[in-house]
Amino acid sequence: MVTLAVASVVIFAVIEVAPGDPASFMLGVNAQPDTVAALRAELGLDQPKVQRYFSWIGNMLTGDFGTSYTYRSPVTEIIGDRLWVSVPLAVYALVLSTLIAFPAGIFAAARRGKSGDIAVIGGTQLGVAVPNFWFAMMLVLVFAINLRWFGAGGFPGWSGGVFPALKALTLPAIALALPQAAILTRVMRSALIDVLGEDFMRTARAKGLTRSQAIWRHGVRNALIPVLTILGLQVSFLIAGSIVIEQVFYLPGLGRLIFQSINARDLIVVESVVMLLVFAVVLINFLVDITYAIVDPRLRQRS
């Protein structure tokens, strides 16, 4: 809650502090003075700052984010439409990166120093080093242009069925997921290697568990804490990363919206989207904290 309040003040202040009048800024240099005045009135810029801040917050709490200047429709509606692309894309990418990283990390940790481990480490090196938009373009080149398995971009909407929509999101999700998966694999590997050196792993072996049984039953869950931390941070990066990826794949998501709004100087949309992203990050951190407590009983008393 505190984080959100602080963030809202900062966002509001930055827009306020930005030089020039928001209305004339939004309309550009060639605007007529009376148009600017009309917009000022529409935006409520003629009212005192404190009152504007509280009405902005109050409206947001009731779900009213204001009206976009460029789209001439409520921001809530615009964002709502875009969320239907961006949230599934982020979740899709997250699931993919987890599905790749967990097995790969566990595989590498169990074979530490052997060829399998070295191969995985090499792969993650590549994944970390290569930027995701380049991945995106390579994926388009191979799977959309040469193999024609997927479309090169665009989004058919969910009304046409779940499968075509997911299909359209697959390449962008892969492009988003691969670099994240590379980082996550490394974290999983090193966390698990640390755990494998713990005394309780030896205890588990002394009970008669095989090496892999011991890793799965006692190792993985103990390695999850650092992995969850990184996973939580990555969700924020996924949202940020989608700005570029949505451009490459021409997806009507939040990332594209914020990009277009900044270009069109639509401050109301920018303000709202940023606030929403802050909210999303806070929410995710909260979820990560809850998951910590589920994974590790020692953390339950503290929270």
Partner: peptide, 26 residues
């Protein structure tokens, strides 16, 4: 190794030095 796994814990039990870390905390 497979047979050893059936011997450990059944025919032999082992107690370690450091009880604070010998148990899985989760």
């Amino acid at each position: 190794e497979a047979e050893m796994c059936s011997i450990r814990g059944r025919l032999t039990g082992m107690v370690f030095q450091e009880p604070m870390t010998a148990l899985n905390p989760v």
